[in-house]
Structures are given as structure tokens and as C-alpha cells.
Design a binder for these strands. Sequence first.
DNA 1: TATAATAATTGACCATGGTCAATTATTCGG
DNA 2: CCGAATAATTGACCATGGTCAATTATTATA
Lengths: 195, 195
Amino acid sequence: MTRAPQKRRLETRAKLLSVAEDLIDANGVSALRVEDVVARAGVAKGTFFSHFGDKDGLLAVILGAQVMRHIEDMDAAPAPKTPAEIAQRLSLLLDFISQDRMIFDLLLRYSGTTGAEVDEVVTQGFLRQISMFTGWISQMQAAGTLRGDANPEFLAEGIQAFLNHVLATGFCMEHGDLPPPAEALVPYLEQWLLT
Amino acid sequence: MTRAPQKRRLETRAKLLSVAEDLIDANGVSALRVEDVVARAGVAKGTFFSHFGDKDGLLAVILGAQVMRHIEDMDAAPAPKTPAEIAQRLSLLLDFISQDRMIFDLLLRYSGTTGAEVDEVVTQGFLRQISMFTGWISQMQAAGTLRGDANPEFLAEGIQAFLNHVLATGFCMEHGDLPPPAEALVPYLEQWLLT
DNA sequence: TATAATAATTGACCATGGTCAATTATTCGG
DNA sequence: CCGAATAATTGACCATGGTCAATTATTATA
């Protein structure tokens, strides 16, 4: 039985998170240095690792929360009615992830940590996203606007696959000339979801 | 105009590669240390980086070559006739990539380096793989065994997407209980390629 | 072949993430 | 309120990838 954390620990953690968020806002994820975080937070290096395990742990918490916020926004609006609308609904999230390859890599790596660590925000986010997709698809199937011959959860996983594909592909071309990820996603979704 | 590399340089490069391959065979990709490689090869650290840019550069060369070998094997046999046969044909490659998450991550990262570096083996491999898929699909379309309503290259990219999806998903569950990647791939391919 | 120009290599040095035995703060039982 | 037990923090130290001015080997030129 593990004890509840003391107030001091919660404060330290909050301080580390807020400092890291500020630094990320200012300089981007790639430029974040653990040494800078602990220096600004006024704690020792070891404290950082005792809280987050490693640097990616901290990033997972912060980026996972941001992803979760996007998912909640997407889920709040009325369900999309076509594949193109799904892609459009995803555009803010996709833009966020496209902003830095490090974000994509980290989310992909943490996306399914078995759910072993119940508090893994990233895992939660992905599960939530799949169930959101599943809900959309069920509704569309009920409305007869897309193929009814496959189970919604399976189709939802396919969306996930194409979403990652489009993101990965986007990083390959040198930035500048290619369409935004949400747009690139449309043909895949249509092929996957229609008839 | 850059000059051709001297014999000495080619020998050094070959030595580094062969030492690294031996170490990988013995201990796996994750355990490879640059210091070990240079020590065994009898060269200085700087030499390593002058040849490969960074550690991933060396890995890209080695793993890219292994992937290319798998692709050539797959391409040598007669074209598969069904989605399930495609999955089966891919199983050796998928098993190879599944063996260590580091391999998957690296291949994904290097898969499309713009083709800017013409000698990037990984990029070559992916292009080759897509064209192999495209060929298979064309033949199957001609034979009428799968949907003829989409262009083969587009369908080939979809295969790539599902292939990565299955691999990524495989790493998430703790190893042991889940089916081999090639098997997990089948339903996606069928849904994607059939009618 | 002597010398200048260029290629290749060297290794001390740095940057950064990560470890862990020792120390300090907090809580708990009596 | 006083130790004893546990939680939290500390910071010197380590591991490993990566840099680059200096050095040595090779090639080109006269």
C-alpha cells in the first residue's frame, strides 16, 4: 500500500510542470532541457527524475494533457457526418502534432503503454479518441452514410492508422510545399469508410 | 565537386560496419554503443561521426540493408493473390522489425528523408516496397480479385499505413499474448483491398 | 621528388540525460 | 513532545552521444 503524496511533493511537481510548460511555450518542445527546468524550478536534478522517471515522462504528462484537451474539444461539437468532416474536425489536433516531430514520436511511443500505468495521460487520450471515433462511426452507420459491414471499433482503429500515416508522411517531405495533414487525410478516410 | 573517397576511407567504413554488425548480432540493436564500435574497429570516435553523421546514420545503413534484403526476397517469389497472402509474404519483414522497438522507430523516422540523400538505404527500401505493393495490386486488379476503383499506388500506401499500425500496436501490449504482426494485419488488408 | 593542397583521422572536450547513497523534512505511535 | 519510520530532496557522479581544432596521410602539381 503506497501512501498519499505529501503537500510538499505536490507543490514541487506542480512547480516543475508549470516551469516546463513555460519553457515549451517559449522555445518549443525540442529545446527543452532538464537542467533548465530544475534550475528555474529551484530543485535538484534528482527530484525531477523522482517525479517523472525520465524526460519523456514529463513530456508525456504535458503533451498528453494538451492532446486530451483537443480531444475534448472535438468531442464537444456535434458528431461529424462525413469522412471529410471527420478530417476537418481533426485538423487542430493534427496541426498540433505536426508542429514538431518530437511530439509525434513521443505520442506514438506512449500511445499504448498497456494501460498498466493508469495515470498515463497519453494512453487515456488514445483510448478516449478511439471511443470518440467509434461513436461517430456508429452514428454514421445508423444514418446510413457509410458502410455498415464492419464493426465501428475496427473502423476507428483504421482511422487511427491513417492519421499516423499522414503525420509520418508529412514529416518526410521537407516542410513547406505539402497540404496540411487534415486535408491529406480525406482520401484515405473516404476509401476506408465509404461503401 | 567532391572527390571520390580514398581507399583508406572505404576500408575504415567497411571495418566500422562489420564490427557494428557483429555487435548487433551478438547483443541486439539496443545494446550497441558507439564507443564499443570504435574501440573494436581500432579508430577514434571522431572518425565514426565523420563517416555516419550520428549513431542513427550507422543504424540506418545496416538496418536499411537488412530491410532491403527482405524486400528483395519478397519480390522474388510470384506475386501474392489475396490480401491474406500479402500479409503472409510480409511476415519475415514484420518479425524482423518487431524484434526491437528501436528498429521500428528508426525505420519510421528515416523512411522518407525526402530522397534528398540519394544513398539513404532506408528511403530506397520504402520506395521499393511501395512499388512492389503497387505491382501486386495491379496484378490482382487485373485478375479481378480486388477492388478496381482506386489507383494501385494509393492502395499501396494504405498497406504501408496498416503495416505500421500493426507494428506500433504490437509494441504497446506487453509482449507474449498477442498474435504475430502478419496475422494481425489480415483483417485490415481485407477491409482495405476488397470491394 | 619536393611541396602545396586536400582528405582522413585523432582524442581531448563538451552537452545532456540519468543514478543513487546520503541528507533533510514530515508523519506516526506512544 | 520525543524518537522512529517513512517520504522527499539533494547534488556529486556517471554514461553516452557528439564536436572540432589540431595532426597525419594521401594526392596533385610543378
